[in-house]
Design a protein around this nucleic acid. Structure first.
Lengths: 217, 217
DNA sequence: AATCGCCTAGTCCCGATGAACTATTGCTGC
DNA sequence: GCAGCAATAGTTCATCGGGACTAGGCGATT
C-alpha cells in the first residue's frame, strides 16, 4: 500500500512514516504542508493519503479537493487530534474517505487505511455514531455532523432499508422520482458510499436506536 | 383487494369468505378444489389467491404454477394447517408469495395478504426463521427448509449484506461474475424478493444469529 | 448406472441505479 | 434585503442489476 502522510508536526510525521514502513507499507511521501502533500500525491499517486485536518484557514479541506483532482484513485484519510474531531462529517462530505484520531494505535490506523483503499468508509464506529446522530441541541457543536443527514434524508434512508425502489420511495414520500433520486444521491455522497445497499449496511452496522432522529423512529 | 380462496374445508372456506368480506375486501371466488381455484383465478384475475397446501399428490404445488400462468399479477398465499407447515420453503420456491397458518387470526392473515400484494414475502416471522435455518440434524424434517439456502448462497448473502457489488462478490468468492450473478439470482428467487436490498432487509429483519449456518457465522 | 442438486459459466434484454450536473422555490438567520 | 440551505425537479450518460434462459461438471442418493 503506497502512502503519503501530510502533517505539520514533524515528530509525528516521521514517527508515522517509520511505523507504517515497519508494517510493510510503502511510505512514498512525507509532507509538512498541504502544498507539499498535494505535490507528493501528484507525483507518486499513492493508494492513500493521510492528511492532517488541523491546517489553518480550511486549507485541509481544499487540500482534499486538490488531492482528489490530482490523483482520483487516491483515498484521503483525515488525521486529527481529539480537539478537532468536530469536522468528521464535513471531511467526509468534502470527499475524504475516512477519518482517524491521532490517539489511535497504529494497527487501528492501518486498518482504517485498509478500509479506505477497499472503498469503504473509514471512520471509527464511535465517531461515526456521533457524526450520524443529528445535533438538535444548540449546545452541541454543529460542526460535528452539520446535520449530517437531513430529516428528509433520514426518511429516504428508512425507505432504502425497507428495500423500496426509487418509485416506491417517491410514492411513500409523495414526491417525484427525480426528487427521491436526488435525495438518495445526496445521501450516498454524505455517507461516502456508492450504493443504496452499502448505505443500508453502514447504518445497520453502526446505527443505534439513537442514531435515528427521535421523531422518525 | 380482490381475493379468491381455495380450500377443501367448506366450513373454513365460507367463514373465510365472510370474514374477508367484512374486512372490506372483495372475495370474487370460493373454490373447494385446485381446478375450481385455478378457474376462478383465470376468470377474475384477483390480487391474491389464498390456496390450501393440503390438496393431495402435490396438486397444491402445481396449482401455484397454473395460477401464476393464468394470472401472473395474482399473488399466491398458501394456507395451511399446523401439521403441514413443513413445506413453507417449498411453497415459496415454487412461486408462492406467502404462507399463513390457519390458526392465525383474520387480521394477521389480512396483513399477510397486504404484504403479498405489496410484493413482499408474506411469511410469519416465526415460520420464516425456522425455514431460513438450515436443517443439519437428521431428526429435523428436511421439508421444513429444503436446505432453504445452500452454503454458497449464504456466502453470497454475506457479500450482499456487506454491500458488495457483483464484481467484488465474484472476487471474494473466487468465481466469475456470471456465477455470482447466478447465485444472487437463485437467492432472490428463493427468498421471493426482487432486489438484493430487499433480501438484505429480509434477513436483517427476520434473521437471528442462529439463522446463519454455524460454519459461516 | 442414473438422477438429482449444487456450483459453475454463459447469453440477451431492459429497466434501475449512480454520477454529475443545473435550476427553482421557500425558509431561516444575519 | 440577502446569503445559505433544504427540498423540489429536471437532464444526460454509463453502468449495474434483475429476469429468463441454457449448459457442463461433479458429487451424493437412489
Amino acid at each position: 500500500m503506497k502512502i503519503v502522510v501530510c502533517d505539520d508536526h514533524l515528530l509525528l510525521l516521521e514517527a508515522l512514516g517509520l511505523a507504517l514502513s515497519s508494517k510493510g507499507h510503502e511510505v512514498v511521501g512525507l509532507a509538512s504542508t498541504p502544498e507539499e502533500g498535494v505535490a507528493a500525491v501528484a507525483e507518486h499517486h499513492p493508494d492513500v493519503c493521510l492528511l492532517d485536518v488541523n491546517f489553518p484557514d480550511g486549507t485541509s479541506i481544499s487540500a482534499i479537493h486538490q488531492i482528489r483532482e490530482a490523483s482520483p484513485q487516491t483515498k484521503v484519510v483525515m488525521l486529527s487530534a481529539e480537539a478537532d474531531h468536530g469536522i468528521v462529517g464535513r471531511s467526509i462530505a468534502e470527499g475524504a474517505a475516512g477519518y482517524v484520531g491521532k490517539e489511535k494505535p497504529i494497527v487501528e490506523i492501518v486498518e482504517m487505511l485498509d478500509r479506505a483503499v477497499r472503498g469503504q468508509l473509514a471512520v471509527e464506529p464511535s465517531l461515526l455514531q456521533r457524526a450520524l446522530r443529528p445535533q438538535k441541541s444548540a449546545t452541541d457543536d454543529p460542526l460535528w455532523s452539520l446535520q449530517f443527514l437531513t430529516d428528509r434524508e433520514w426518511q429516504v434512508m428508512r425507505c432504502i432499508m425497507d428495500g423500496q425502489t426509487t418509485e416506491e420511495m417517491a410514492s411513500t414520500l409523495g414526491v417525484q422520482r427525480s426528487t427521491a433520486r436526488t435525495h438518495v444521491q445526496n445521501l450516498l455522497t454524505k455517507l461516502g458510499v456508492h450504493s443504496r445497499l452499502q448505505a443500508a449496511a453502514l447504518i445497520s452496522a453502526h446505527g443505534t436506536p439513537e442514531t435515528w432522529p427521535a421523531h422518525l423512529r
